[in-house]
Design a protein around this nucleic acid. Structure first.
Length: 306
DNA sequence: AAATGACCCTGGCCGC
DNA sequence: TGCGGCCAGGGTCATT
């Protein structure tokens, strides 16, 4: 569910509450939320309790909270890594607040200025997860993601490409990668090792805006078309972020439980049978990798190689 | 070696 | 009202 704009709303919402805060206690209600954590739930609780959080950082759809070193002599640094999967939420609640529906993990924090707060990880479908992972240097020495200055990234996120809103994202490298891909452009947009942060909603929206058929072979796109697509990807992500993200139901909400408004601005995604805002012909829905693509078959002409 | 598909899980909605 | 089938914002892993 949550794609870059939704995760960024959550990251930015967490930042003032968790930066500089100390973990007073950790409660794991469901170990399935820790599938990406290398140790046990007990280990997770023990490793986190008493630690101080330095920041709230995001790359693509992953976010992490770097921790102050426990032992200044130990060079290894760690972070709490979070991924919301399809239905994960990170909520800020008052201490002792009643359990949320589908609450999986709770962190009780003490902030030097704002006092105590509970960070609740709730997740209906349990595809999301929290973990403690080691931070490793970024190969390009640029900051690991949005919200942090450090040139480091959790080991389990290192294979994720930079996202298109990251100043260190390379348009040229993206174009080079496309030429070498023997896949449809939509598949490549969803490949987080090529470009991160784009999911099914914003892939469909970007392709609609750029008038590109989702099944166009990636290497059939001209440099000009790729540039146009990247521009539309950035535009739709920026616009969605400004509107607080896309909420279809109660699943995606910000840290205060509020929905975003971008669902009203969708042109293609989820609008099967409704008129294309550009030409009036119906938006079609086509099965795609256990999901769906939504597009205008008139505005987004299928092209082939050559 | 890269590119697909199955799978993890819960719940809402639709048609019968 | 009940129940089966289908669908949903994602990532990983096995298989070709």
């Amino acid at each position: 569910m949550p794609e870059l704009p939704e995760v960024e709303v959550v990251r930015a919402g967490l930042a003032p509450a968790v930066t500089g805060a100390t973990v007073l206690g950790v409660t794991v209600f469901d170990e399935r939320a820790l599938t990406r954590h290398p140790g046990s739930a007990l280990d997770f609780e023990a490793a986190l309790t008493g630690r101080r959080i330095r920041a709230s950082v995001r790359r693509g759809k992953f976010l992490w909270l770097p921790l102050e070193p426990e032992d200044p002599a130990d060079p290894a640094e760690h972070a709490v890594v979070g991924h919301l999967g399809m239905s994960g939420q990170l909520l800020l609640r008052t201490p002792g607040a009643a359990p949320e529906r589908h609450e999986r993990v709770r962190l009780d924090l003490a902030h030097p200025v704002h006092g105590e707060v509970a960070v609740v990880f709730a997740d209906q479908r349990t595809f999301g997860s929290l973990a403690i992972d080691e931070l490793v240097p970024t190969p390009d020495a640029a900051p690991g993601g949005c919200g942090g200055e450090e040139a480091s990234i959790p080991r389990q996120v290192a294979h994720i490409a930079r996202d298109p809103l990251d100043p260190a994202f390379s348009d040229a490298r993206f174009r080079t990668a496309l030429v070498r891909k023997d896949s449809a452009i939509k598949r490549v947009l969803l490949d987080q090792t090529v470009i991160s942060g784009v999911g099914n909603i914003y892939a469909d929206e970007s392709l609609w805006a750029a008038r590109i058929h989702p099944e166009t072979p990636a290497r059939a796109l001209s440099t000009r078309a790729v540039n146009r697509l990247l521009g539309e990807v950035r535009h739709v992500l920026d616009k969605a972020l400004a509107e607080g993200g896309t909420s279809f139901d109660a699943q995606y909400v910000n840290v205060n439980g509020q929905a975003g408004y971008f669902a009203h601005s969708l042109n293609a995604y989820g609008r099967t049978g409704e008129p294309c805002p550009r030409c009036g012909r119906p938006i079609v829905r086509v099965p795609f990798t256990n999901r769906s693509s939504h597009f205008c078959a008139h505005c987004q002409r299928r092209r082939s190689l050559g």
